[in-house]
């Protein structure tokens, strides 16, 4: 059971990663693939049965005006479970979640276009590179680059960080590292750049005194290349 749950958990997280940068097609593919597993129907059935039972008991507790409703519902639920496995029911809820995600994603894939919520907004364009894909949210003088990396981010050593900063005409500040994430900050007289990397995700937030899309693209590309370089020390978390 743990293996199945691990697989579905990983699929749900991958879907959210792809939704985060707007890659609906891949998110849909991940959902479709994860739902091709064998035991789905049995698990969804268990989830639906548990849902029905708990809803029925809540109504019954209300009708009977039970004083300690929470406890009565818990005890009655555990007594009347019979053929339902709680673990199956909870795994089934993950499958229900996955199915609902797939249905909503399917609607987007079929309609072929993602419209922004506000009409005046331009939809962000997904840019695919060799080791990552990203979108830019332009709100000059502020830009946010959201990137999904193919592999877990690499931690640059000091020399590499200094070299990249020099090439970009920026000054680096001290790198902050934790168990699972890293922040880098760069600045110049005209720009402030903050990089937050968490596993496969990187966010680059830039503020420019003289906003330039070209400059923003150059900075973000260089930084993302550095985060996805194989020769850097990999971020050891496993």
């Amino acid at each position: 059971m743990s293996e199945e749950i691990s697989y579905v958990m990983s699929a749900i997280n991958q879907i959210y990663d792809n939704l985060w940068i707007g890659d609906i097609k891949i998110a849909f593919e991940v959902a479709t693939q994860a739902l091709q597993q064998g035991k789905i129907e049995k698990l969804v059935e268990a989830a639906e049965m548990a849902k029905k039972l708990i809803t029925f008991l809540r109504i019954e507790a209300k009708e009977k005006e039970i004083e300690d409703k929470e406890d009565w519902v818990t005890e009655s639920f555990l007594k009347r479970l019979e053929d339902i496995s709680i673990d199956d029911a909870i795994a089934g809820v993950m499958m229900v979640h996955l199915s609902n995600l797939k249905a909503a994603l399917n609607y987007l894939v079929e309609s072929g276009k993602i419209k922004p919520l506000l009409e005046e907004e331009e939809p962000s364009q997904l840019r695919k590179e060799k080791r990552y894909k990203c979108v830019v949210i332009s709100q000059p003088p502020k830009f946010e680059v959201k990137a999904l990396l193919d592999t877990s981010f690499s931690v640059p050593n000091f020399e590499r960080l200094k070299k990249v900063a020099e090439e970009l005409g920026l000054n680096p500040t001290i790198l902050e590292k934790s168990k699972a994430a890293m922040t880098l900050r760069f600045f110049s007289g005209n720009e402030f750049v903050e990089v937050i990397a968490q596993r496969f995700i990187a966010r680059i937030i830039m503020t420019m005194r003289e906003p330039s899309e070209e400059r923003m693209n150059r900075i973000s590309s260089k930084i993302l290349e550095m985060l996805t370089e194989e020769k850097n020390g990999s971020f050891d978390r496993k």
Partner: peptide
Amino acid sequence: DPYHICHL
């Protein structure tokens, strides 16, 4: 591992 956490 952040990918071993699922919010339901």
